[in-house]
Design a protein around this nucleic acid. Structure first.
Length: 866
RNA sequence: GCCCCUGUGGCGGAAUUGGUAGACGCGACAGAUUCAAAAUCUGUUGUCCUCAGGACGUGCCUGUUCGAGUCAGGCCAGGGGCACCA
């Protein structure tokens, strides 16, 4: 067993006992309240936040990676003199608690708080520099009561409204289903065919902020480009036209939105959504339409389901007149691919230039006409693929010969001139439906009164707490079933009234917690003085899976809170980092069942076998860790086996933080070895080093000078790497520095050597500190410091030691490396060229060819062109 | 289906952002130490060839450039998101 930190009977093994030492420093930090912070406007602040976890029961390696990254930044910024806010809390409402209640009969609150207690212990064992005094849980009335206040503020400002919208409905369980609870169109528990159903829902007016959320992205220069791009696409600003089509033989018009008005002459039919008012009207006395609408409602509410479904429709019997082609009419179809939520819920279809329209047209044998063509393809018919690129307009009367852009402008001019349409901007972003028909969420603080309608709860009555005595044995929302909870008096007229029994989407909880952390026990939801100091979050870290919804909702909430005066800013997170997932090999036993990594060992022949039965094991692909495939490692076991420092070190090393990392025991062992190597070196060499505070002597041996240079260069590199969150590169630099440090043999009695050794050891300890904080504290003490490393400043590089006066330059002939030369830094280009050309290998490569040109890039490369 | 990302040795990855591809770690191999093993230390390790040298090489194909892992265009493969999972 090589992983035991204190191997008995081993003489060479260091006596570093991770468990003891890690616990020791954790309690020291806790006693001294090292990481508890207060608003202090005299000091520069830095707010580091990792996305708070859902309390599922145990932390997983993904959490370890996420929180370690944040912790490195937090500890580093502290060392750089910032007042660092680094809080932790729990995203504690949500479905899993209700599932546990239903499956195991345990109350959601009990289940959640037990999970929190366990995860808190696990997180604490990681040695994170968190201010635990600011801990919060969204399921606590102290949090969600304030959220209800925010809701009322938003309501007053007109940022919330009610509207009918669609939900997935399980007709057997009589309950609303989340998209993930709909499997192949059926309820996950009942197996019943899921229907779409309309419910009255509360909505946030996020779409009022579409343009602001879009332009705001430009200011977020410390966000990954891809996240900004994803949000930009999600908001989906488009320029297009609204066109009013006359319904043939009627005074009514059908209003459509299109981004391709240039293809209007290629229109062959109209598509309207199953939920379009016209459809709703027609289905009353048309069974075929009614049947088709019902079919559409069985499709599920996700955009993915709608897009992937076969394109289908039903003819309404109505046609519209083409606005520019005299006598041409276009049939109106109810079509399953037209979304009521986008544009006007109606389109004109041009099969030649839109793939969905083409699929539909082929199915129903409708006309397909080319109206846009690339150069030379004007007369080519459209095959099975729509031509969606821009090109030259053909078959389009007055648009012929124009390019797509000019045609758009021209046709909009003509539409506006004739009053049959106008240019318009459209956004894909829809309002945010926040109502959930569930128990374990924040109650929406409004009351329905027969006389007064919908009335907000009085602020002094907050929090509206969830009742504890609920059961989950009946389908539907327990709040609705509760005998007394929903019955109350109308705050306005005092008559008997009923509470709203819907609770809020859990995304609401996570849309303002970063603001609450600034003063988590404050009476108002948000403490102005504290958020003015701490916000925005300087570095936010979390998974890429939140790139759109959570981050967009938080940006909306911050704007909404600005409107209610709670904050003065628009953007909550000035820096964002999205870390990759943790993956692991998968294993299957002989009979095909998944196995945990700890159930697999290698036999003498090196083959993977089951630890108990000895039967062969199949090693599968490397996949995202998931409980169903059992390819998970338990952080508790890892910390137990390797120590928190080694676990932290390993999740930072090897893989770049924004990419997926594979968990391997071998990698963890490497981290563990480094920890011991460093510990052994410092404990064995501390007495050879100069005493703390000894001034630098005037002269140094070559070896000492070279060690000092490497030490100071390492400061520069590690600092730069941490600033850029390139933790893996920082660790590579430290490994390299460790080799040089271990190679350094100070001559006895040599002052310079003793000084260099001490300096290098202290630099090493300081730089390792954010990653392996326990070991670093221990060694910091070993080399003679009383002050905690956590309270000590970051190592400072001496600039003169970080630059070399010679550089190695590559010499290429025709782009191929032929030699390297050592020249003075910033050497004159002519001199460099002369030296380069004098190299025998260079001469051989040039041969008899005339030298046409020599390119000299200072301090980098020489390229001889022949 | 739509949007976004990623692809470099046996493996994880590095590359000052267009300038010596493979830093650093893992694994493997060889040696030292040991009664022996573990641990530790030292060295070698992209592929191929006619091996003091050279050719090839960053998923595939084309291009721009004195020079491409890096830029452009087109493919292929894997992953994330798609509004009620969090």
């Amino acid at each position: 067993m090589i992983f035991t930190d204190d191997e008995p009977g081993s003489k060479t093994m260091s006596r570093y006992n991770a468990k003891e030492i890690e616990a020791k420093w954790q309690s020291r930090w806790e006693q001294e309240k090292t990481f508890e912070v207060e608003t202090d406007t005299s000091r520069p602040k830095y707010y580091v936040l990792e996305m708070f976890p859902y309390p599922s029961g145990n932390i997983h390696i993904g959490h370890v990676r996420n929180y370690t990254m944040g912790d490195v930044v937090a500890r580093y910024k502290r060392a750089r003199g910032f007042n660092v806010l680094h809080p932790m809390g729990w995203d504690a409402f949500g479905l899993p608690a209700e599932n546990a209640a239903r499956d195991k009969g345990v109350h959601p609150a009990e289940w959640t708080y037990a999970n929190i207690a366990n995860m808190r212990t696990e997180l604490k064992s990681m040695g994170l520099s968190l201010d635990w005094s600011k801990e919060l849980a969204t399921c606590h009335p102290g949090y969600y009561g304030k959220q209800q206040k925010l809701f009322l503020d938003f309501l007053e400002k007109g940022l919330v409204y009610r509207k009918e919208s669609w939900v997935n409905w399980d007709p057997v369980d009589m309950t609303v289903l989340a998209n993930e609870q709909v499997i192949d169109g059926r309820g996950w528990r009942s197996g019943a065919l899921v229907e779409k159903r309309k419910l009255n829902q509360w909505m946030f007016r996020i779409s009022d902020f579409s343009d602001d959320l879009l332009t705001g992205l430009e200011s977020l220069d410390r966000w990954p480009d891809r996240v900004r791009l994803m949000q930009e696409n999600w908001i989906g600003k488009s320029r297009g036209a609204r066109v009013h089509f006359q319904i043939t033989g009627s005074d009514d018009t059908l209003e459509i939105y299109t981004t391709r008005p240039d293809t209007l002459f290629g229109a062959s039919f109209m598509g309207i959504s199953a939920d379009h008012p016209l459809t709703q009207k027609l289905m009353k006395d048309n069974d075929a339409i009614a049947e088709f609408v019902a079919e559409c409602h069985r499709m599920g509410t996700s955009e993915e389901a709608i897009e992937k479904a076969e394109k289908k429709g039903v003819f309404t019997g109505l046609t519209v007149d083409h606005p520019f082609i005299e006598g041409k009419t276009l049939p109106i179809y109810v079509a399953n691919f037209v979304l009521m939520d986008y544009g006007t819920g109606a389109i004109f279809a041009c099969p030649g230039h839109d793939q969905r329209d083409l699929d539909f047209a082929r199915k129903y044998d409708l006309e397909v006409l080319r109206v846009v063509a690339p150069e030379g393809a004007e007369n080519e018919p459209i095959g099975d693929t729509a031509y969606t690129d821009p090109g030259k307009i053909v078959n389009s009367d007055f648009l012929n010969g124009l390019d797509s852009e000019a045609a758009k402008t021209e046709i909009i001019r003509r539409l506006e001139e004739s009053g049959r349409g106008e240019a318009t901007l459209n956004y894909r972003l829809r309002d945010w439906g926040l109502s959930r028909q569930r128990y374990w969420g924040c109650p929406i603080p409004v009351i329905h009164c027969d006389a007064c309608g919908t009335v907000p709860e009085k602020a002094e009555n907050l929090p509206i707490e969830l009742p504890e005595d609920v059961t989950f044995d009946k389908p539907g929302n327990p709040l609705d079933h509760h005998p007394s909870w929903k019955h109350t008096a109308c705050p306005s007229c005092g008559a008997d009234a009923v509470r709203e029994t819907d609770t809020m989407d859990t995304f609401v909880d996570s849309s303002w917690y970063f603001a609450r952390f600034c003063a988590p026990r404050n009476d108002d939801p948000v403490s102005k003085d504290d958020v003015d100091y701490w916000l925005p979050v300087d570095q936010y870290i979390g998974g890429i899976e939140h790139a759109i919804l959570h981050l967009l909702y938080s940006r909306f909430f911050t704007r909404a809170m600005q409107e209610t005066g709670a904050v003065d800013i628009k953007e909550p997170f000035s820096g964002l980092f999205t870390q990759g997932m943790v993956t692991h090999e998968t294993y299957r036993s002989k009979n095909g069942t998944w196995l945990f990594p700890h159930e697999v060992v290698h036999n003498d022949a090196g083959e993977p076998v089951h630890v108990e039965t000895g039967e062969p094991v199949t090693i599968g692909g490397v996949e995202k860790m998931s409980k169903s495939k059992k390819n998970v490692v338990d952080p508790g076991e890892i910390i137990d086996k390797f120590g928190a420092d080694a676990a932290r070190w390993f999740v930072l090393s090897d893989s770049p933080p924004d990419r997926d990392m594979e968990w391997t025991d071998a990698g963890a062992t490497g981290a563990w070895r480094f920890k011991h190597r460093l510990h052994r070196f410092v404990t064995e060499n501390a007495d050879k080093a100069a005493a703390s505070g000894t001034p630098a002597p005037d002269t140094f041996s070559d070896a000492a000078l070279s060690l000092r240079k490497e030490a100071h260069k390492t400061i520069v590199q590690v600092t730069d790497n941490i600033e850029k969150l390139h933790f893996n590169s920082a660790i590579a630099a430290l490994y390299k520095f460790m080799s040089s440090l271990a190679d350094f043999k100070p001559a006895e009695g040599n002052e310079g050597d003793a000084f260099a050794l001490r300096e290098a050891m202290e630099i090493m300890i300081g730089l390792v500190g954010p990653m392996m904080p326990h070991l670093a504290e221990e060694l910091w003490q070993t080399v003679g410091h009383d002050v905690l490393l956590a309270d000590s400043p970051w190592p400072v590089a001496i600039e003169s030691l970080t630059v070399d006066n010679t550089v190695t330059m590559a010499v290429q002939v025709k782009g191929k490396l032929r030699a390297t030369i050592e020249v003075a830094k910033d050497e004159d280009a002519a001199k460099v060229e002369e030296i380069a050309l004098a190299q025998p290998n260079v001469q051989t490569a040039i041969g008899d060819n005339p030298v046409r040109k020599v390119i000299v890039v200072p301090n980098r490369i020489v390229n001889v062109v022949i």
